[in-house]
Design a binder for these strands. Sequence first.
RNA 1: GCCCGAGUGGUGAAAUUGGCAAACACGCACGACUCAAAAUCGUGUGCCUCACGGCUUGUGGGUUCAAGUCCCACCUCGGGCACCA
Length: 973
Amino acid sequence: MSVYSKLENKWNRLWQKAGVYEPLLSLPKGKSKSSVIRKPFYNLMMFPYPSAEGLHIGGVRTFSGVDIFGRFKRMQGLDVFEPIGLDGFGIHSENYALKIKKHPMKLAKVTEKNFYRQLGAIGNGFAWNEHLETYDPEYYKWTQWIFVQMFNRGLAYRKKMAVNWCPSCKTVLADEQVISGECERCIANVVKKDLEQWFFRTTKYAERLLTDLEKIDWPEPIKIAQRNWIGRSEGASIKFSITTSQFSIEVFTTRPDTLFGATYLVLSPEHALLRNNGLGVKNYEEVKKYIEKAKSRSLEDRAEAKEKTGVELSGVYAINPANKEKIPIWVADYVLAGYGTGAIMAVPAHDERDFEFAKKYKLPIRQVIAPKFSEIVNPPRPEKSTIHRKTVHVILRRLTDDKILMLQWKGKVWGDNPPRTFIIGGVEDNEDAVKSAEREIWEETGYKNVRFVRKLNFEVHTEYFAAHKDENRYAEINILYFEVDSDDHGEVSSEEIQKHDPVWVNEKEVASFINVVDGPFIWSWFKNGDKAYTSSGATINSEKFSGTDSETAKWEITKFVGGERKTQFRLRDWLISRQRYWGPPIPMIYCPACAEASAGKENAGWQAVPEEDLPVRLPFVKNYQPKGTGVSPLAAQEKFYKVRCPKCKAWARRETDVSDTFLDSAWYFLRYIDPKNKKEIFSKALAKKWLPVNMYIGGAEHAVLHLLYVRFITKVFKDWGVIDFNEPFKKFRTHGLIIKDGSKMSKSKGNVVSPDFYFKKFGADAMRMYLAFLSPLDQGGDFRDAGISGLTRFLTRAKNISKKLARTLKEKLPEDSEIFLHQSIKKITGDIENLRYNTAISQLMMLLNGLEELSTVPWGAYEIFLKLLAPFAPFLAEESYQSFKKNKSFKKEHSIHLAPWPKFDTKKITAADFDMVIQINGRVRATLKASVGINQAAAEKLARADANVKIYLVGKTPRKIIFISNRLINFVV
RNA sequence: GCCCGAGUGGUGAAAUUGGCAAACACGCACGACUCAAAAUCGUGUGCCUCACGGCUUGUGGGUUCAAGUCCCACCUCGGGCACCA
């Protein structure tokens, strides 16, 4: 047994015995105890799901990191509740059991023991009395209870649809558990499978899940991830009638303003109208084949397909309700079944995906939105009339040197700044664009032998005030490209020469040469165009809506075609069933007799297990391996599934799927406050006292998994009146990931760092400090043990300094040490509050360095030092503290961990002097001691007296003197 | 492709939010103690220069008396989302 473990065991025992870390959970009866006045503080670490392999060092860092905060809050006088337990049910545990060929039920016992042993060694102030495990029937009884409530209150339903299926885990998965087409647990490619499953109506809470994000103190990236996941978008649903049938196709679009540009429709392969050829498609065999093929592709395949594919439905057309045009209908798997109506109107000119598809299948592309610019230098004046003109912008390239011809205008043509533009001009009534371009080139530059190459299939609009005509101009710009082989050109009229000079510009400099607002856009579109323009602008080619702002046109066009304004969410309902063994059985019974009576209704024939019959115990099943047939291993257990219907008593069948592990972890924080309650899920009174959680710390990887599910369950509970708050965690912070040799720790890579060895070798105090000192908590880092010795040295010195303690209690610190002590209290307090443990420890080190320089250390200062150290190094701090306190027997109130946190005295924080920096032209030329609060005149005098400063100032009068109080003075010469 | 986050000594990192860049550590070098080593203690340690001094926060430009910090462009790495109409 090492020296460390001896000390650690001693204190763990004494703390446990005295109940140092047990909060006063229940409401006070009477007012005898001092703890009555302590305010509750719920300090929680994201629910761990350990495997039998045990914790790795990264986990330990987070645990101790959370604990440092908890200890700090406890010393600040709060009644800190820091519970611990484990999330042992679920695929992660079961997969591991499968891998090592052990039964998960037996393995859980081993894991639990090992996990609690490891946690016991890291010196955390856990409330061990309230521990819980999700596979404990006393716990999952209530997980099942939640399911029953969900069912009874219409939030759980059964539905057959294409769901995510992991072929490796042999179960379905929720959308959140499919990461880029791969299973969250095993990285296998997920496929779609038609199965009947249980769902929770998370979508009913989409709006609240989104808006309540504003009310919580969470890291912004996590909020962004949730917002994106919920994916609220506003648009319209629009109906397209079909030539061959009375059906119509409804689409959802966020861009109804582009309706006139919709040149075809696309249905997803799973679309209902395709199921039995209800549309009377002539090539149905071909369509069917395509649908089959699309369904068999994995999600990843579908998403990463390099090229979009599709099949046109022949003989069937839709009518564009805006312009009554007959447009083709396609089936393609780039349209998703699960979003909107599973059908889209395709606007290739203004949607990248449609554009790509239209290019491939040669479908028409029609621009209906033009980018619109307003000149910044001379914007249109609202009081003036506006003249609309069709114009051309000509890009002329000289092939001999690859330069582009541009115009440098003279004088105040349009505004104060002479513009630099392409060759521009208006299109006359009797002209086409090419003709007028040729004319403009000739008139403005004298070039005649130019060759027209192409006209961009893209229009740009710009409005400006034309000063010489005293009117606003609205230009509808066509972009034309010409080439010329030589520099031969004719005379330019003097009239034109007065207006502008032609300038040949290098291709690279074109964008910067132009100084009109639309120029750079036109140039870049010319260079990189031939793509969809997806922003807003002015509506064109849209009959009577042409010319309106596209944002306004959105709702006008929707109204015009009888469409409906609609909000869509990307979020989908939570698929809760799992075809696995290691989870809480879903507490439902299917009765064929009852089903007949209520045929056609939602959940027909399904009864919830009566509450008094809960829990539905998970039986010990020897062959627990997943079957892969779409049912769980429990489906082979007749003794389990054969039951009487709770309603009609006929023979019925119990649901054999289990629920998603994420349900277990979605409510655990509520049970912690009352884990032994047999009558109810938890006491409402206790919930009122302890919840919501004050500080929650966990991994960012759960941004849209656990962290979304908990919020959902919390809102549901609030609606049921079980709790009175909407959000589970007021404050949430992420921790960084500890990696090893540049990659995540994993057994397969063989780079897992086990804490056991290090804790034994260096002790919990040194390890806690080392892990905290590494980097700020929210940052990760590469684990290397090189730096541990620094912390070990520090702790040894911290202990040894007690040898220098003053004889009498009255001795005080010298003044400057006293100031530094108070500065340190302030710094450390603030740093811990913000989880910046690394700088807090650095300050502790400086404080110790300072104390070591004294010949004797006053007891008061040492006590403060120990208290500041206590959250980081709980054992050493307690040991040293107690050896001076000399209590006869250790009691709860004796512990340093319940002693009041040191307070700093604001008056003692500022020193009398500071180092004033003297700069000449921003360069430091001297630093001088000056008294705090010195004014500019005095500072200047002091600075000028310095020899080095004199050298730089001799014979010069400063143009400017910048004086920053209590910091610096800068002479600008 | 889109959205975040980050680039600072040999290493982990710090910098009161625009005010002395590299605090605090690790490592390294030298010294003390020691027969010796470890441990411990002391000194030094961004780069160039014998020095005076100059240069330095991914690259280039800008704003400012003053930029790691603000603005523009670009490069690299990490993370998340990914046909969401």
